[in-house]
Design a protein around this nucleic acid. Structure first.
Length: 408
RNA sequence: GUCGGGGUAGUGUAGCCUGGCUAGCACACGGGACUGUGGAUCCCGUAGCCCGGGUUCAAAUCCCGGCCCCGACCCCA
């Protein structure tokens, strides 16, 4: 007998109570994005390999899911939501700008799975296209950050800027072809410490000493070149906006980020662990590189599954499966359907028992599902009454059916 | 790609080193005590040694191979 129970490595099944909390988290994110005025977009999970392996994805080429379809075309699963969106913008050259769009969807990376890392995971992006104003950068940070806070997580945004890094690299004389290597090493600063970074840098270590001159508060950052001053001013402005959005942030010279399409401010967000849960940055050149007109762009993204994997127990997420449990005494099914229908009409989510089991079992079921309010459909309904029970206090009362939706 | 640690009911585990009772326990699940009242208690029940080969009178246990899972590195959300 074949074993058909295997899952693809690095993917997850979401079952209650996690599935309920996950849906709740996604709802909070989506509601928040909508409140910020972002519009939902959706693009295919499948993209041409050509796109996925293009400029935007070079750093990530090794972790792609790529395959040939029946016609021999090279197809791949998207590894983020930014590149497909950039493709849409490059393709549709007359979309009215600016665009604020959000997209929540699964992405795939051929990684080796480990703690907080999966091969299939969900990202919740916001992006703004069509302006280079730091106000846009502030908003694509503030929207997801606010969503996280509503879900009970208050992290600190670590801010840096690619232009600043490059300007500093220019100033300290770091050869252009060694920059990626240098950035990759300093990115580990908080993980392996200064000594670890030095070791990693090897012959580039001397550059670190000059680089560390800039490891100070943002306002104190020495303005050794025009480029450094420009980048610093931009970050200061962004920081002021973030303050006004109520976002907690700090300058962190060691934030780099892996994707190579970033061109301006970049950020990562950490709660109480050194694992990033919200990140993004500005990528003004990507759409042009894909053949569109040049459109400035900036975005941020929540790593939904990573957040849940690491923090679900400390988050403020309900696990209740519905608002109301409709328990039905055998013989009163038709009445139960009517009651459930009426309550749904009043905006409640209803779990109605469909098993015909005895009342004790139904109440235990309601309890297990985390549903606090139970209406019991039985003989009282023949006199236009119904029993409403509060599972937490154990209290129950009999009300007129006509008043039911007000009574609960 | 490199390196560790593991696979025993749905979940978590005992047993393995030192081979041998009917593979034990807890939680979960189903039923009952209690056919219109949950959480407590008690009773009953469903359900398991990753796969293949070897050694042996005898393998969950020892040996070999495979598969899978978890984690660390690399890289990254």
């Amino acid at each position: 007998m074949m074993d058909f129970t295997k899952r693809v490595r690095g993917t997850r099944d979401f079952l209650p109570p996690l599935s309920v909390k996950r849906a709740e988290f996604l709802r909070i994110i989506e509601d928040t994005y909508r409140e910020f005025g972002f519009i939902p977009w959706d693009t295919p999970a499948l993209e041409m390999a050509e796109l996925l392996t293009s400029k935007g994805g070079e750093e990530i080429r090794d972790e792609l899911y790529l395959f040939k379809d029946k016609a021999g075309r090279e197809i791949g699963l998207r590894f983020d939501l930014t590149l497909p969106t950039a493709r849409v913008l490059a393709e549709n050259k007359t979309l009215p700008l600016p665009i604020k769009r959000y997209m929540i969807g699964k992405v795939w990376r051929y990684d080796r799975p480990q703690a907080g890392r999966f091969r299939e995971f969900t990202q919740a992006d916001v992006d703004i296209f069509g302006t280079a104003n730091p106000l846009a950068d502030a908003e694509v940070i503030a929207a997801p950050w606010t969503a996280l806070r509503r879900a009970g997580l208050e992290g600190t945004v670590q801010l840096n800027d690619r232009r600043l890094l490059d300007a500093i690299a220019d100033y300290i004389g770091l050869p252009a072809e060694r920059r990626a290597e240098f950035y990759r090493a300093i990115d580990k600063w908080y993980k392996i410490g200064e000594d670890g970074v030095r070791e990693e840098l090897k012959d580039l270590a001397p550059f670190l000493d000059r680089f560390l001159e800039f490891n100070v508060d943002l306002s104190e950052l020495p303005e050794r070149s025009d480029e450094i001053r420009t980048a610093k001013d931009g970050l200061l402005k962004l920081g002021e906006y973030l303050d006004d959005f109520g976002v907690l942030w700090t300058f962190n010279l060691f934030i780099v980020r892996g994707l190579d399409y970033y061109t301006g401010p970049i950020f990562e967000t950490f709660a109480d662990r050194p694992t990033s849960i919200l990140s993004g940055g500005r990528y003004d050149e990507l759409i042009g590189l894909l053949g569109g007109k040049s459109i400035p762009a900036t975005g941020g993204s929540i790593g939904v599954d990573r957040v849940l994997d690491l923090y679900v127990d400390s988050m403020n997420l309900s696990a209740k499966e519905a608002d109301i449990y409709v328990a039905i005494i055998p013989g009163y099914e038709k009445k139960g359907i009517r009651i459930a229908r009426e309550l749904r009409g009043a905006g409640k989510s209803i779990f109605m028992d469909v098993t015909g089991r005895k009342l004790g079992k139904q109440l235990a079921d309601a309890e297990r599902r985390g549903i606090r309010t139970v209406v019991i459909v039985g003989r009282e309904t023949e006199n236009g009454k119904i029993v409403v029970k509060d599972m937490e206090t154990g209290e129950q009362r009999t009300v007129d059916i006509a008043d039911l939706s007000r009574a609960i």
